[in-house]
Design a protein around this nucleic acid. Sequence first.
DNA 1: CATGAACCCTCACGCCACGTCAGAGGCAAA
DNA 2: TTTGCCTCTGACGTGGCGTGAGGGTTCATG
Lengths: 253, 253
Amino acid sequence: MSLSVGQVSRLAGVTVRTLHHYDEIGLLSPGERTAAGYRRYTDDDLVRLQQVLLYRELGFPLEEIAVILDDPRVDELTQLRRQHELLIRKSDRLREVITAVERAIEARARGITLTPEERLEVFGAFRPEDHDAETERRWGGTDAYADSRRRVASYTKADWLALKAEAAAVGEELAAAYTAGLPAGGEPAMDLAERHRLHISRWFYTCTYDIHRCLGELYVSDPRFTAVYDEAAPGLAGYVRDAIAANAARHDH
Amino acid sequence: MSLSVGQVSRLAGVTVRTLHHYDEIGLLSPGERTAAGYRRYTDDDLVRLQQVLLYRELGFPLEEIAVILDDPRVDELTQLRRQHELLIRKSDRLREVITAVERAIEARARGITLTPEERLEVFGAFRPEDHDAETERRWGGTDAYADSRRRVASYTKADWLALKAEAAAVGEELAAAYTAGLPAGGEPAMDLAERHRLHISRWFYTCTYDIHRCLGELYVSDPRFTAVYDEAAPGLAGYVRDAIAANAARHDH
DNA sequence: CATGAACCCTCACGCCACGTCAGAGGCAAA
DNA sequence: TTTGCCTCTGACGTGGCGTGAGGGTTCATG
């Protein structure tokens, strides 16, 4: 039931040389040897190998791995649990990097230039839990935001042009309806609100009527958004919010 | 607006030596130097540094990174997109490793021993998309399963004992009700089904009535589950399913 | 103006985790 | 016995820096 170096190497996806090396430094010596001196790995050796590879994947130096694994006070289950936590942490870190890249892509695709700080932020050493607190709070833990990021990241330049043209068209028509004095609760305004909702669903994330309502509120409560609309026509932000609300209400019956 | 080595190193979370090294091998040479020979990094240099660090994080050798970045046919956006995909792939890989560790923890905590293949599988070289097809299919892409894994991974031995005792109690009472001839649609049986549902919610994942119904079906359709129940009393699996269905129906009105 | 303290420079050697031969032997099937 | 594939033990090489040594630069103080 014991395995040769070659078999173990194939099973574990490491080279024979690596196994030799681990034997040399005493990190993982096979439990047995044949008369001819061939290494024979037992099941226990493979358990240890799994541990070694996991800690290695986590970036520990081999010497330290030996110390960790040879601690007699710590059993396998505890090791696994430690590894699990470290892996989760690594996974979180990776997600941050991915988000940063998505942000960079988005910025680049729209022609915005990020500051060096924004670009390199994710590599910086210690950063406390500022994380994405604002976004989290605002979107209440939905994954619409992550969803959006992921989709946006795959857009080509052409996609962005189409997207912006579409957004501009809806925006202009809303502004026109507003300046023409059409009521926010009227059919034309509500239809435009619906187009706005579909635009978001198509390009960013599934925008339910509830989410759309929240967005409407945001347009008047968040100055950064308000500015965009009110630049086109003062008071437009509020008009848009009302049209969205009316459209959502119409849909609810 | 240019930065010194020290400033860049702090910003990017790398050592000064690393920046010197990148300059030495021609991977990233600062755009300017002061009269005294001090390195001065421009914004463009920082953009390049971001790229370098990303590819490095992805495990590329420095020499290859130079080749990739110096390809004149590929612009920054394309680079970012490539990086994004590689990062996603890495993230998926990491999730697999985490799942494997969770499986190992679970097995260990219950006293089951995994085969070496199962343990080392995740490290093996090429593995096609067998992934978790069965689980995926069965649970229809809900994240109840992942949820469960994550929670289970943090249980101590004591937790497992409590968990098993609780499960055994519910199981025995169900068997007793069945052998006593109590109807599956009766109040006692339905109450037991509800306790069963709460047990799952408490220890594994949020078990809605719908999910619970599916579980009931599973108990009669999957021989591995059927065996567990019918071992206690032949026909118990079907009884449990009916009790679960009745309890769910009761809840729906 | 001198004097630290904090930067920065260029060698140059060291280290870790293997990769990559070389030369020799082991083993099962043909 | 030959053929083909393992496996063994040295031993040197390599990539990506770490870690000094020895010395110049800059700038706010005494």
